[in-house]
Design a protein around this nucleic acid. Structure first.
Lengths: 217, 217
DNA sequence: GCAAAAGTGTTAGGAGTACACCCATGC
DNA sequence: GCATGGGTGTACTCCTAACACTTTTGC
């Protein structure tokens, strides 16, 4: 391994996050406007070049913090994007992650050293993005659908518990289809990761709904 | 993106393959002995540093060819390993893949510019390897079990078709457990990717067994 | 004829899906 | 009292898993 071999000199790693939220029932992804070259002025996903002294997720957390002010996001590995020409500056391989945040509990910094704006963009209104970020988001949405079914990724919305109708709305928005209420209840209630409480709460209807909670983990 | 920023100077990408085979009924992985530093003289998985002018899989195919002589292997993405200290030379992120070859149809070059030996090593006899390759293999074996159930990865053993008992033996070896013969038949025969032929063949028993084939794709 | 392996069918449980009516509440 | 949304049960299908006897053939 020769550090200066020109065949693999000037390579780097992008760590990139598709950070999603549900805003008034709509699935949105966090985009930032780039202040610097390349793709100056373009919209892009959060993320950037990994430093040598940090692990992948730590580097991604740093990038997310620098570009949006967001902290403490749970991240799930999504995929790898490594086409040789995906960056115009130098050879970069992208490791992509998925995150989910509650838009009502975070404040996005819209102007940083590296960004001049930030928006939550509905996933069917995504503009042309920097690099291969359009492809990355599309892939992330596919993987997000699996994560919703197989992990507790939606827990972030419900630290105090949730009613089944409100959880179902989020499922339906992310999966892009309507679900049967009775079957949804059966599935959720029989899940090992979810318990019912004695509390009730109004959601959209007139009748109160029972509150359920995600268990730790 | 400044190419010479010291924070991310001297980074690279490892593309690494856990290449498996079934040899006399035993699941084995291909290991090479390194001729060069770092880890000179250590056993390791096949793979190496990606060049700037090649896509990830192309780079991996080149590395596999250079270190073993193997060509035309089907590769499946397995995982990403990116701990900051996983390489002693410089910061390397590893993209790992899984491959499967028919040991009876390939010849491994045991002495190359970069290797001084190569062995097919039973997966429960794996020695201490270079880098984090032990961890990579362990993870690859986990992912291989899913690939066997969900893809045609075993097709490589049976270009002319297979009998159900011989396919079942391979399933059992890879999954590490015995399967019920009747249930296995039902599952395989009902698979869309497999068709039966009119031929029969002796496998281990005295009675002839019907031959099945994987369909294209 | 017997050993060795191939071939075969039924049952039970769990998961998913489809589907219609009553309940509580606010107005 | 009626509109709105919450809560509930049953039947069908499909998949998985458990389980034992018969058939073919080489010796």
């Amino acid at each position: 391994m020769e550090v200066n071999n020109t065949k693999y000199k000037h390579q780097g790693i992008h760590v990139i996050a598709s950070i999603f939220t549900i805003d008034k029932g709509i699935l949105k992804v966090l985009l930032i406007k780039r202040k610097n070259k390349p793709f100056q002025g373009s919209w892009a996903l959060t993320g950037g070049a990994l430093y040598n002294d940090e692990d992948l997720e730590d580097g991604l957390r740093r990038e997310i913090y620098e570009k949006t002010g967001l902290k403490n996001i749970e991240l799930k590995l999504s995929n790898v994007f490594g086409k040789k020409d995906r960056s115009p500056v130098m050879r970069m391989v992208a490791i992509t992650y998925i995150g989910m945040v509650d838009i009502t509990k975070v404040k996005i910094t819209t102007n940083t050293l590296k960004t001049s704006d930030a928006i939550w963009c509905p996933i069917n209104e995504i503009p042309l993005l920097a690099y291969d970020h359009n492809e990355i988001i599309k892939d992330a949405i596919t993987n997000l659908k699996e994560l919703v079914l197989e992990t507790n990724i939606l827990k972030v919305f419900f630290p105090q518990g949730f009613t089944l109708p409100e959880l179902q709305k989020i499922y339906e928005e992310i999966l892009g289809k309507k679900l049967d209420r009775r079957n949804f209840r059966k599935k959720i209630i029989s899940s090992k990761n979810i318990i019912s409480t004695e509390q009730e709460e109004n959601f959209e209807g007139k009748k109160k709904a029972k509150i359920y909670k995600f268990i730790e983990g």
